[in-house]
Amino acid sequence: MGDKLSAAEIERAQFAFSIYDFEGNETLDAFQLDPALRALGLNPTLKTVEKLGGQKRKGQKKFTIEEFLAILAEAKKDKDVGNKEDFREILRLYDKSGDGNMIFDELKHILLSMGEKLEADEVADIIKDCAVPADDDGFTPYGVFLDKLMAGPVLKEDE
């Protein structure tokens, strides 16, 4: 089933699978499909995760390693994901001066209203962790925001 994956990809997938096998019974709860795929460097949309069998609640479905490898191979083929340059190009549309800055409130609006909708508290956390505060004119550099956002979560020392 994992024949579309390289040996190194299979090894990484098996390791990720073992991390998300919280019960130790060689299965992955479908609720954990999204974080497991993200741990392997993919950035699937919620729609893609659902299409691949991901669940919104724990305990509804389990995957074996063979099923997970097939899902991973399918997820790697999915073109419905973006990369940093795609996102940079989108935010560049809001860069009226062409200087790498955009209006801070537009960034918040984009996160709240476009694509997969985020809740206000989720946006506040993302902004706090990734965005440079607005300058006196209300602008923020979107490149710094994207770099921090795409780098993924960073655990603080007290976590």
Rank of each mutant, 00 (worst) to 15 (best):
A16Q: 07
L40K: 07
E11N: 10
G98Y: 13
D125V: 14
I65W: 05
L42A: 07
P35W: 03
D99K: 14
L28D: 08
K47V: 08
Q14G: 14
I71C: 02
D121A: 06
N83K: 10
L146H: 15
P141E: 15
R12W: 07
D29R: 00
F17C: 05
R92I: 12
K117R: 08
F139V: 01
C130R: 15
G53K: 08
A16V: 15
L46T: 10
E85V: 06
E122N: 08
Y94P: 11
L155H: 12
D158I: 10
E116T: 09
L107F: 09
D78F: 03
L112E: 14
A30T: 00
L40Y: 06
L155T: 10
R12P: 07
I10Q: 06
P44Y: 01
S18L: 05
E119Y: 08
A70R: 06
E159H: 05
I65A: 11
L72T: 11
K117L: 02
K128F: 10
H109S: 13
C130E: 14
S97G: 02
L112H: 09
T64G: 09
K58H: 14
D95L: 10
F22H: 08
T27M: 09
V49Y: 03
G143V: 15
D34L: 01
F63S: 05
F22L: 14
L28N: 06
G24I: 09
G53P: 13
I127R: 10
K96A: 12
G115I: 02
L91K: 08
D125L: 14
M114G: 05
E116L: 06
Q14H: 02
Q32F: 03
K77P: 13
R92L: 15
D135A: 13
V49I: 14
V49T: 12
A120T: 13
E119I: 00
E11D: 10
K4W: 02
A7F: 01
F145L: 13
V154G: 07
D95R: 12
L72M: 08
F17Q: 01
D105R: 03
K56A: 00
Y94N: 03
T140E: 13
